[in-house]
Simulated assay, not measured.
Amino acid sequence: MNIVEHNKAPLYDAPGHQGMVMRRLQGKEAGPSQSAWIGLSVIEPGGGTTSSASDVEKFYVVLSGELTVVARRGSLIQEVKLRPLDSCRIEPEEARQLINQTSSPVTVLLVMPNKA
C-alpha cells in the first residue's frame, strides 16, 4: 500500500498550465504505479491550460467549482461546463483546453496512463 497525505503530495508543473496548483496524489514521484498516475489541480479564476493534445487518453473529474473544457478533434469543437462530480474523457490526439471562467477556484482530479 502507498499512502500519500494531501499536504505531502508532490507539487509539479506542466507546460502550458497557468494559474494552477498541481499535486501528484499517486504514481510518478508520489509513489509506484503500474498503470496510471493521479493528479489534483486547483485552478484559480482565469487560470487553465493552453489547447494541446497528447498521445494518451486523460480523465478529468471536477470535485468542486465549474470547469470549462474545450475539446477539438479535426474540425469538430466541443465546449462543455463540468460541475461537481461531472467527468470527461479526452481521447488520444484530441486537443483539450481547461479554463476556469468563474470567480471561484475549481478543483479537478486527473487520471492518466503512466506512459505520458
Rank of each mutant, 00 (worst) to 15 (best):
V106W: 05
S35C: 02
T49F: 00
S54L: 02
R72C: 13
P10S: 01
I90Y: 04
K81Y: 08
V70Q: 11
V61C: 12
F59C: 09
L76V: 10
R73Y: 12
L25V: 08
T107A: 15
Q34H: 02
S51A: 13
Y60K: 04
V21Y: 00
A95N: 13
G39M: 02
G16H: 03
M22H: 06
V62P: 06
G74F: 09
L98T: 08
N2I: 09
M112H: 14
P113D: 06
E79K: 11
N2S: 10
C88I: 15
C88Q: 11
G65T: 10
Q34V: 04
S104D: 15
V111N: 12
S64A: 15
G27H: 01
I90W: 02
L82A: 03
T102H: 10
G48H: 04
E66W: 04
L109Q: 09
L40E: 08
G19R: 00
I43Q: 06
G47P: 02
H17E: 00
E93Q: 11
K81N: 14
G46R: 11
V4G: 05
M1F: 05
M20S: 06
A9K: 00
N2V: 11
R24K: 06
T102L: 06
A116N: 12
Y12S: 01
V69Y: 03
P105W: 07
V56P: 08
S51P: 05
M112F: 13
E57Q: 11
L40M: 07
Q101F: 11
S33M: 08
L85M: 15
K8V: 01
V106E: 07
T68D: 01
L11E: 05
G65D: 12
K8S: 06
T68F: 00
E5Y: 10
P84M: 12
V56S: 13
I43E: 04
V62I: 10
M1P: 08
L40N: 05
T107K: 15
V80R: 12
P32L: 04
V21I: 10
L40I: 00
P113S: 03
S33A: 14
T107W: 11
N100Q: 13
G31T: 01
G39T: 06
A95D: 14
T68P: 00
I77D: 02
M1Q: 05
S52P: 08
E93H: 15
L109R: 08
L82N: 04
L109P: 03
S104L: 15
W37Y: 13
Q97R: 15
G48D: 00
E66R: 07
I99D: 09
E5P: 00
R83K: 15
T49Q: 05
S52N: 14
T107N: 14
R24D: 01
S51W: 04
R24T: 03
L40C: 06
V61P: 03
G65S: 13
S51C: 07
E93P: 04
V4H: 02
V80E: 10
P15G: 01
A53C: 12
P84L: 12
S52V: 14
K81W: 04
